[in-house]
Design a binder for these strands. Structure first.
Length: 193
DNA sequence: CGATTTTGACCCGCGC
DNA sequence: GCGCGGGTCAAAATCG
């Protein structure tokens, strides 16, 4: 394992509700699939995806840090808007690094789509999935040097099945109030059994 | 007023 | 080579 402790589920609410959401309505499911190197076809089937990329699990943004300096390519948009983006994100990757990016997919049954695991996440994108009516949310850990990404997908067909995919490994303590976290965790364990 | 979300545009890999 | 699907960025908007 590359992480000290495995996935930790916590139920804090940074959402409108200042109290704990209805934990009775949201119970944990034990459909947890770990995918390390393109072996997540299992959960793919569950979600109904049809991606088959299993050998594109390298490169990515390992050393790119979280910010790229705008010095690569600046091209003007069709409307005259200047867009600056990093051109060589993976092209300059000459040295083959075998940095395995841990990818964990969790399928959680809950009514609330925002499953707070105790870390601070900044939403950086939202895309609609073809098979699902509900869009997929992309979150990123707000830390310098901590490039942990997470995406949350929701199944529209099922009642409340939220597939959360964690990507990366952050090494930061939980800064949120973990007061009743253990208590809640215990409850969740009870519910998950 | 700062941090975070929103949202449209852009990029990239792949299939046709 | 173009279109599509998925992922990311960044400016504007919104929230606390």
């Amino acid at each position: 394992m590359n992480n000290n402790s495995g996935p930790i589920f916590s139920y804090s609410s940074s959402s409108p509700s200042s109290s704990i959401p209805d934990i009775h309505s949201s119970y944990l499911s034990l459909n947890m699939v770990e995918s390390n190197r393109g072996d997540y076809s299992n959960y793919q089937d569950q979600m109904g995806l049809m991606e088959k990329d299993r050998n594109k699990y390298e490169s990515s943004d390992d050393v790119v840090a979280d910010h790229v300096s705008p010095s690569s390519s600046s091209r003007a948009n069709g409307d005259g808007k200047e867009v600056i983006m990093a051109a060589g994100k993976s092209s300059i990757r000459k040295g083959e690094k075998k940095i395995r990016k841990p990818k964990h997919a969790f399928q959680t049954r809950s009514q609330v789509d925002i499953l707070d695991d105790g870390y601070r996440w900044r939403k950086y994108g939202q895309k609609a999935v073809k098979n699902n009516k509900f869009p997929r949310n992309y979150y990123r850990c707000t830390h310098q040097g901590c490039n942990v990404k997470k995406q949350v997908q929701r199944l529209s067909n099922d009642d409340g099945v939220v597939v959360t995919t964690y990507e990366g490994t952050h090494s930061h303590p939980i800064e949120k109030s973990t007061d009743n976290f253990e208590h809640i965790l215990t409850q969740m364990q009870i519910y998950s059994r």
